[in-house]
């Protein structure tokens, strides 16, 4: 405390989702010199989405660097670096560009700790700009989360808020397990008022505490009539749907899953048991998807509290559409409200 009263700096600043990620990377690299960042165009260019903007200049080309254009190479080299004391963060330039690295992810990244009975842990983060809604051409808009969540050994998260973008990326880098960090591309430019210093203070030393965001879902909006369950790019759409429903007198709760693996059954179960109705929303094709898994888990745990079957609003079971057609594919406010209307309110 100082004796002189000064004009206090505003506690919050306006930050984009992208800048929150950049801040998280910079802060993590500042705090721990074993953290290195590499991938395609992440050096002087700062990445095609500018998430690594300024990191090479700030930390040098040994800490943030470009690699040859080969995703399995990036992933495999990260495995070796993690084996030898580093905490690599790699960027797969786009969701669909990560597929060449799939064998490394499934056979090595995910399994190394288990194969070696915990003797070799891989503290690495796989950042993937993912999902659609930005008018991208083919191979740039895949919702590829199901491939990763179906692979035991991977932690898979998809934040939807600016604060979570910062906090969850810091947590992911500090975790001793490999994390697939899904960054909804269409949210990169979304803005929020956040208290960055308060977010940073959680990482001022010591072990990650019990209120870690990874492993915990959050209630993004309170409501009493039905629960909308979403993650990543679908969360703002769900909130918009809840706002529209409120104008019509219906109170919808929104849960932001944000951590797909580990999955927070407790928060979801407690919420749906109270409202008795639920709709799961995700951009990915619905068949055999994360949305399907959530529906199954909710039915298993909340059956006696449910007034209606749990419904899904997902992308169609089609390859991701061309830009002029994607709006028909993506979950929309209207489609969510239609699903809510179908939750057997008359019974």
């Amino acid at each position: 405390m100082t004796a002189v009263t000064e004009t206090a700096a505003p506690a919050t600043t306006t930050l984009t989702f992208a800048k929150a990620l950049t801040a998280a990377l910079g802060d993590a690299m500042e705090a721990d010199k074993s953290v290195v960042m590499f991938g395609e165009d992440v050096g002087p260019l700062g990445g095609v989405f500018r998430i690594t903007d300024g990191l090479t200049k700030r930390f040098g080309e040994e800490r943030c660097f470009d690699t040859p254009l080969a995703e399995a190479g990036i992933m495999g080299m990260a495995v070796g670096m993690a084996m030898n004391g580093m905490r690599p963060v790699v960027e797969m330039q786009f969701d669909a560009f990560a597929y060449p690295a799939f064998e490394q992810v499934v056979s090595h990244v995910a399994k190394m700790a288990n194969r070696t009975k915990g003797q070799v842990r891989l503290p690495m983060v796989i950042r993937i700009p993912y999902a659609g809604g930005i008018g991208g051409v083919e191979h740039h808009c895949d919702s590829s989360e199901s491939y990763y969540v179906h692979t035991p050994g991977l932690t898979v998260v998809a934040p939807s808020t600016v604060a979570d973008a910062y906090t969850m990326l810091r947590e992911a880098i500090e975790l001793n397990d490999p994390v697939v960090f899904l960054e909804p591309k269409k949210l990169y430019w979304s803005k929020e008022q956040v208290d960055l210093e308060a977010l940073r203070a959680k990482f001022d030393g010591g072990e990650p505490d019990d209120d870690a965001s990874i492993g915990r879902a959050v209630i993004a909006r309170e409501g009493t009539d039905a629960t909308l369950i979403a993650y990543g790019p679908s969360v703002p759409t769900a909130i918009a749907a809840a706002e529209a429903a409120a104008e019509e007198g219906r109170s919808l709760q929104v849960i932001d899953i944000r951590s797909i693996v580990p999955f927070d059954d407790e928060t979801v179960t407690n919420a749906v048991r109270k409202t008795g109705r639920a709709v799961v929303i995700a951009e990915a094709s619905g068949f055999a998807s994360v949305a399907s898994e959530i529906v199954a888990r909710v039915q298993e745990r909340c059956f006696h509290s449910l007034a209606a079957p749990v419904l899904r609003v997902t992308g169609f079971d089609i390859p991701y559409p061309a830009p002029k057609l994607e709006h028909w594919h993506l979950p929309s406010v209207d489609r969510i409200l239609d699903a809510v209307d179908d939750l057997q309110w008359e019974d």
Partner: peptide, 30 residues
């Protein structure tokens, strides 16, 4: 894997072909 890779600096025996060569590059890079 039946041995601790860090005891003798011997990685686990790789079954998938050639994937371990990249891990070797990573260990050397680190």
């Amino acid at each position: 894997a039946g041995y601790n890779p860090y005891e003798f600096n011997v990685a686990t025996q790789a079954t998938p072909l050639a994937t371990q060569l990249l891990h070797a590059v990573g260990v050397a890079h680190a």
